[in-house]
Write a protein that binds this DNA or RNA. Sequence first.
DNA 1: CTTGAAAGGTGATTACG
DNA 2: CGTAATCACCTTTCAAG
Lengths: 149, 149
Amino acid sequence: MDEIDRKLIAHAQNDGRASYAEMGAAVGLSVSAVNERLKKLQASGAITGWGARASAEALGLDLLAFVHVLLERPEHEAAFRQTMRDTPAVQECHHVTGEWSYLLKVRVANTAALERFLTERLKTVPGLGRSHTVIVLSTVKETPALPTE
Amino acid sequence: MDEIDRKLIAHAQNDGRASYAEMGAAVGLSVSAVNERLKKLQASGAITGWGARASAEALGLDLLAFVHVLLERPEHEAAFRQTMRDTPAVQECHHVTGEWSYLLKVRVANTAALERFLTERLKTVPGLGRSHTVIVLSTVKETPALPTE
DNA sequence: CTTGAAAGGTGATTACG
DNA sequence: CGTAATCACCTTTCAAG
């Protein structure tokens, strides 16, 4: 993982359909070298996959919310985590420090869908305590690309 | 944007390097139809781009934090937003409801880098009030793919 | 790592049903 | 939307410097 690898990852994150020739030109490598490095980066797990980036609006997902969750009973953690993994609306689920146990990033169509998630998915989990929902009014920045600097 | 488009987006999100033939087989379309639909989805903005997914650990980004920010003076919003856009460590920046103004998702190497971000980047913004940082202990789920169901 | 070459696959476009 | 055909480009692998 040298400086060239970082540049390569940065470029691959922002233009995943670029040809090896283009990537090579961007980082100063030949096509063969790009091929080899990308293969190694994927084998080592530095690059985990490739994917299209979709627009939430276009998919009708007009509501983004962060939900803070308190889980008082540790014996119910496994069930809670599995529910989060199985729920498509949950984009992220983090175990966090502070007054709450978990922080969720939830994307749904509207407030009705958010209500369904909260009442039918979240509050039905055994051992679940309070929760606190923060609605996103607008997004200034949101990139799936990791910083390489 | 019909059911096939949604399936196509779902597949493209999870396997961005699949050939048109593979995507066609997955959603029940011919290669030509996949080609046409993907082009339309990109022209309409439903698909905004393609990119590699990288591992935060591999890039040495061992610390993930959510930073709640209070911005009391509205006249300094533009400068604050620009700073967030210009800071690679800031993966997300949302304007939110509740007791805080903004919620940031910040990814850095370690606590020292987090301290640098907070003192040198964030607290130097004019008009910035209090902030509250939540550290991620572990991540149960984190996907850049939007739900299509 | 680079160059060059060879083989097969793919993206993009066209035409027709 | 499907099939078929075309062509330029691309991916992949290999050998040699």
